[in-house]
Nucleic acid binder design. Sequence first.
DNA 1: TGGATGACCTACA
DNA 2: CTGTAGGCCATCC
Length: 110
Amino acid sequence: MTIKPKSKPDFFDKVYKVVEKIPYGKVTTYGAIAEVCGIKSAARTVGWAINGAKESGLPCHRVVNRNGELTGKLHFGDPNLMEDLLRSEGIEFTDNGRVVMEKFFWQPEL
DNA sequence: TGGATGACCTACA
DNA sequence: CTGTAGGCCATCC
């Protein structure tokens, strides 16, 4: 554990809540989460927060980057897990290996 | 207080 | 498409 979000889960708390609200078969982006949290430019910090969220049992596999790419797939332990989970939820991928944001993008809200 | 890290974003060549 | 560069923010030491 290189992180201990136990002292001030200030920012984390919001991220956890948003990620937890992601509906089945939908995906959101780091920037969108950061934006809802009130800090649109803290997309990086969101990813960092989710880094700890993955061990919290959150559907972090529904979080992708602005391009719809599964940037954090490598952090799931298995690179195929993330894509597999999304496909299992009915999410489609393009030839570029990206999620079809146009249809599966979900706008997070508190 | 400041440097280092991080699953990002945007812009440009 | 790839690489480089800057920025933006939270947390840790």
